[in-house]
Amino acid sequence: MKLRMELQFFSQEKTEKATPKKRQDSRKKGQVAKSNDVNTALILLAVFLFLFLYAGILGDHILNMMGHIFSEYLRWEITSFTLTVILEELVMETAIVLLPIMLVAMVAGTAASMMQVGILFAPEAIKFKASKINPIQGFKRIFSARALVELLKSLLKISLVGILVFSVIWFNLDSLLLLSHKNIEAGFFEIAQLTGLIGSGVAVLLLFLSIPDYIYQKYDHEKQIRMSKQDVKDEHKKMEGDPRIKSKRRQKQMDMAMQRMMQEVPKADVVITNPTHYAIALKYEEDKMEAPVIVAKGVDFMAMRIRMAAEKNEVAMVENKPLARSLYSHGNIGDHVPEDLFKAVAEVLAYVYQLKNKLP
């Protein structure tokens, strides 16, 4: 009993690598090796690199908008109509500023996801599951080893990002202290340049940190989809199918093949018999065939059915024990008669054609 329990335990232990089918099923459920840090890093890097190119246009647009606000809107009388016009114009101007940045972020995020998992559409991943709101399951997730790893990662990222930001500000402290002596435009571009430098530095740092995170996510994913020996056996059995179903399918295929074979017997020129144990039906069309073809063959009960079908459709039957055995042993349905039996078969066909008065 104890030995059986131990064997059962080991068979359920997940020690085997996932099979291709298991990987495919996991992918359909949205369970793939993916690091969110890679997405975050690439989005930040793309956005801040774009801002370096877009900063001049962005700054001019914001300055023009602020000038328009202070030169035009302050002189307007506040009514429901003017307030609507102001809000509409501000929303439009803000959209013009933000839409290119959002578009770059969306493209970068999509590219980062495709780099990791390729093109994937998994609607099952967003289905509602009661286990997601189960407090016991949530408690287990919070205090799991995965949660501890995520906490350590977050603390490391916050520390390194804080050090990087502090270092950039510290090295540019003199320039920041002189902002009060500069005009608004120069001060704006100074802050924008410093912000872009900090953002790009943080993005590069996160991208560097995302490499080991992606490796860990891949390792953790492989661990999550591992299978037990019993799982592998069950999957193999399922793919092969139930033996009873396979047997029924095989029997049905045999019945269909037999039915097709019996439909060819009435078209045969001759049936060579044993006389009771073997029956082989032959057909020969001089202008279409190089040699006679075996259209049906059978032994015992099937031989009896072939003989009955031949008798019913007035197909000639010739008794030749050695030839019947040889044709059954060396020829398959649909094949030409073996070369070493050509002469014997030709003699039989000649005899049949003489009986029908149509000797070629």
Rank of each mutant, 00 (worst) to 15 (best):
E77D: 15
V337Y: 03
E339W: 08
L103I: 13
E93D: 06
I169K: 12
S113L: 07
L349S: 06
G331N: 04
A55H: 09
M114D: 00
L341W: 02
V107N: 04
L87F: 15
A309V: 03
N313L: 05
E222D: 11
A108G: 09
F139K: 08
G196C: 10
D335S: 09
A291N: 07
G138W: 05
H336Y: 04
K358N: 13
P322L: 01
A281G: 14
S113I: 00
M317W: 01
M308A: 15
E240K: 14
E347V: 11
I294M: 05
Y214K: 07
K17N: 13
S175P: 04
R141S: 06
K252L: 15
D255M: 13
Y284S: 11
F10G: 03
R325W: 00
S144I: 00
Q116G: 02
V97M: 15
K252T: 13
L152Y: 00
F70S: 15
E235L: 02
M5Y: 15
H236P: 05
A291G: 14
K28A: 14
M227Q: 11
A147V: 01
N357M: 12
K297W: 00
K358E: 12
F81D: 15
E89D: 08
A279Y: 01
L58R: 10
N134T: 01
A145Y: 03
P338T: 05
H61I: 00
L148S: 14
F166N: 07
E150G: 02
E314K: 15
G334K: 01
R27G: 00
E347K: 06
I184E: 03
M65K: 14
S113K: 10
E150P: 02
A55L: 12
K343Q: 15
V204T: 03
Y278H: 06
P292H: 07
M65F: 15
L197N: 08
A203E: 10
A108L: 02
E347N: 05
E185M: 14
A309S: 12
I169G: 06
K233M: 03
Q230K: 10
Y351S: 07
R305S: 04
K356G: 06
F81A: 14
G109C: 09
D242C: 03
H68W: 11
M1W: 15
V348Y: 07
E93I: 12
Q24Y: 08
K34P: 08
M258F: 09
A95N: 05
K321N: 10
E16D: 08
M262L: 09
T19M: 01
E93A: 08
R305G: 03
A279S: 11
A95D: 02
G298T: 03
K2D: 09
L42I: 06
K127P: 02
K129V: 00
P360Y: 04
A108D: 07
P266C: 13
L209Q: 13
L49F: 08
N313E: 11
D300I: 11
L160D: 01
D287L: 10
R305P: 03
D231Q: 13
R250D: 05
D242M: 07
A316W: 01
P266D: 09
K127N: 07
A112S: 13
V117T: 00
M227I: 12
V117W: 08
Y54P: 02
I142T: 01
K182C: 14
V165N: 02
A46D: 11
L176E: 06
E319A: 04
L164M: 08
K288R: 10
F50Q: 02
W76Q: 15
K127R: 06
K22Q: 02
L341E: 04
F171I: 08
E72N: 13
E347S: 11
M239N: 13
L156M: 07
